[in-house]
Design a protein around this nucleic acid. Sequence first.
DNA 1: GTATCGGCTGGGCATTCTGCCCAGCGGAGG
DNA 2: CCTCCGCTGGGCAGAATGCCCAGCCGATAC
Lengths: 159, 159
Amino acid sequence: MAIDHLDARLIVLLAREPRIGVLEMSRRLGVARGTVQARLDRLQSQGVVRGFGPEVDPAALGYPVTAFATLQIRQGQGPDVRAHLATVPEVLELHTTTGSGDMLCRLVARSNADLQRVIDRVVGFEGIVRASTAIVMENPVPLRIIPLVEQAAQDRERG
Amino acid sequence: MAIDHLDARLIVLLAREPRIGVLEMSRRLGVARGTVQARLDRLQSQGVVRGFGPEVDPAALGYPVTAFATLQIRQGQGPDVRAHLATVPEVLELHTTTGSGDMLCRLVARSNADLQRVIDRVVGFEGIVRASTAIVMENPVPLRIIPLVEQAAQDRERG
DNA sequence: GTATCGGCTGGGCATTCTGCCCAGCGGAGG
DNA sequence: CCTCCGCTGGGCAGAATGCCCAGCCGATAC
């Protein structure tokens, strides 16, 4: 569950140069190849590293508009709403959150005009009482994990 | 910018089995190795596929609590607030959104109690007027891109 | 103190894949 | 009709992988 400094360096290296091989990693980190292999296996089996799926940019696919929608759900309709939203490709992510039985979802669309279509499709479902949407303008901090990895490694060193 | 069906199949295959090699992909897709290599190069140079960074699970690192915070920023303090939030490891993501000059950020914490510490650190900055936080309970749809990829490929086929 | 265990090292091995080259083919567009 | 451009299918040397081993060392347990 906790990771040490070598694990952190490994993850950081992998994040910077994903196509790197195990042998090259062992050279960069100054440890034996078997060690790198064992650490990687451990990180994956522990679930710290879930995988190495390709990161696809929605904008490059023709979906440059991102928005977050807060949904208010009618009592007991949660499961149905989830199933409905899962069928909408433009829903990239869905969370249920505290606060008046709400959900928060991330949407993408081809344009601001197209966003209307997406929202219509999202809320065109009886279980949804109200939707409030915020369009993303800038993304000063893109989804990142490296700082947290380093933090976790340091916590362990000290703790 | 638009992708065809083969591109989509390639991305889906890569998402399902990230550690797969180019040769094996060519076998699975029923095309020549050079074709796969050329497609992959194109997808990456076009920015459709940004990379293959490791997907790290914050929960496995000891941060099982996720929250979204909506921040209200004092006029003109945007840049400072961005810089401040970028220094907090628990801030995984930050967006500026429409609606009263707000920002939306994704946070993680070691526990609900620890979330208080994180929020204190986030809002302990003069440019932030108000923060409203929603704790994530469930994540029915984890961040995904495959349905959108397939959608984009179909749009191109028809269009 | 001593024994045991787990992790790391450094090496070797056959197999496989990569990166790079080529000529040829066929459809799309000028 | 001709010229691109993408795909094919093949070959090549070099490199990496997966898998094995014995040995070393520090920490922990007895």
